[in-house]
Design a protein around this nucleic acid. Structure first.
Lengths: 255, 255
DNA sequence: CGGATTTGTATATTAATCTAGACAAATAGC
DNA sequence: GCTATTTGTCTAGATTAATATACAAATCCG
């Protein structure tokens, strides 16, 4: 038998200990410990961490030291703090593949989250030169413009503008409102099999309207994804400009 | 193709870099890097490290910082520094099993090192009470006392005193001197199959004589191993008191 | 609205880490 | 033995990490 046997001399501490003078700074030790708790699921995404004061006491450390640990985690996008509310484990970004056949609800479901969305507005307007070129139609042709916000588990992910050549889908706006799904509305019109023909991606700070729609604090970034979608014969039928909340989505391009 | 391709933009530095403000102190980073070099064989046991000044420059830190890294390694028994000579990668301790059949030369050979030894002296003396009890003979019986030092790769490992009951092996001392091996000398006397009957282990600081024989600096420790060895019929024929240099040997007791 | 809670920010102080330079002590080679 | 080299030790100062308080600002709840 071992001299130390199995005697539980050390109390079964819930592992909230740091070691001073070890060559690893306290904030780093704390950050690693919290990151581990998040990584192995003891702290679920969306969960609220104890208050800074509580954790500082738990680790036996000053609140400022603990805050530096949180700052490191926040830097790495692992947690997010909001004044007055607390610090929360960040939801992992949705992995959003940009492929020929890309459907929001399928992707979100595939990530184990509940897809949703809001229909904002629909109106008719003439095609600008850019839209006309993208859709290969004469400039000034009347288009149907639809504004939408799409959500996962109730949090907005992307707001987007869709333009349809109006003559090809006269009742689309009503169908979208009725079914709540662009995909299903298009299916009803026999255009269910649309596919991406071209996609352009860029990014910039979210403007005020986007921050409102996506519930983003100031300074956050949106990824702007413009795509031209066509039917089975690769004829352009739709142009979309979507703005994804960059810290909630990771666009995935397979090569 | 990746945007960064395989262009070797960063020069092929021999990995002597440290990161400031990373939450890990410089000395720790250096210690870990050196330990890695030793662990993966880039620095062989016995090899001399560059001078402190050189390494300090290589890592871009002050000599004191580097010294703290070396202190940590020295603490862990990974390196050893001697003034005026340099800092050396420590030889790993010989694993020395204490079993019924324990032969120095076999053990050292088994560790891939060259066994050796020096015969120091032989004299006859009467048995003390302790020796008499161990060998189960009357107190005062004349014993043969032999002093030896045994080495591995030329570095002394253990100095030992052996007592034999003189009448059973009158010419042993000459045979040992001639063959250089206790084992072979005993074999010549038909006592080759001696085995450990009992072993007692303790430790203490090395005295002056031991430090001389084992080339130990002041303050080092010897493990004192007393064993009673017997013949095939378990009759005691030999008592030994060996002093192992504690930092060169690891005694191994299998259970 | 108003109070309680919680994160954010500022300032000052103490402790740990790193730097700088000088010199002593041991070793090796001539 | 003498000199150069290398590790050991000391003192002093600069930089970074951590602590201690205090208060502002945002959020939540009744």
């Amino acid at each position: 038998m071992d001299e130390f046997d199995n005697d539980p001399v050390t109390p079964p501490t819930p592992a909230a200990t740091v070691e001073r003078g070890s060559g690893i700074s306290l904030w780093k030790q704390i950050a690693e410990q919290l990151a581990a708790e998040i990584a192995d699921g003891r702290l679920q995404p969306g969960a609220r961490l104890p208050t800074e004061a509580e954790m500082a006491e738990r680790f036996g450390v000053n609140r400022h030291t603990l805050r530096r640990a949180l700052a490191a985690l926040s830097e790495g996008g692992v947690v997010e703090a909001t004044p007055g509310r607390g610090t929360f484990v960040k939801e992992p970004p949705i992995r959003y593949p940009i492929s020929a056949r890309t459907r929001f609800s399928e992707i979100v479901s595939g990530e184990g989250r509940a897809p949703g969305g809001r229909f904002l507005s629909a109106q008719r307007e003439p095609a600008t030169a850019e839209l006309a070129a993208a859709l290969k139609i004469p400039a000034g042709t009347e288009l149907l413009r639809i504004e939408m916000v799409r959500e996962a588990d109730g949090v907005p992910i992307v707001c987007g503008t869709h333009w349809y050549s109006a003559e090809r889908c006269r009742d689309l706006e009503f169908l979208v409102a009725a079914t709540g799904s662009v995909t299903r509305a298009l299916e009803a019109l026999g255009l269910g099999d649309y596919r991406r023909l071209e996609t352009r991606i860029t990014a910039r700070p979210a403007d005020e309207q986007e921050r409102g729609l996506l519930a983003l604090p100031a300074g956050r970034v949106v990824m702007v994804v413009e795509s031209i979608n066509g039917d089975a014969r690769r004829t352009p039928i739709q142009f979309t400009r979507s703005r994804f909340a960059a810290d909630r989505v990771q666009l995935l391009v397979k090569n």
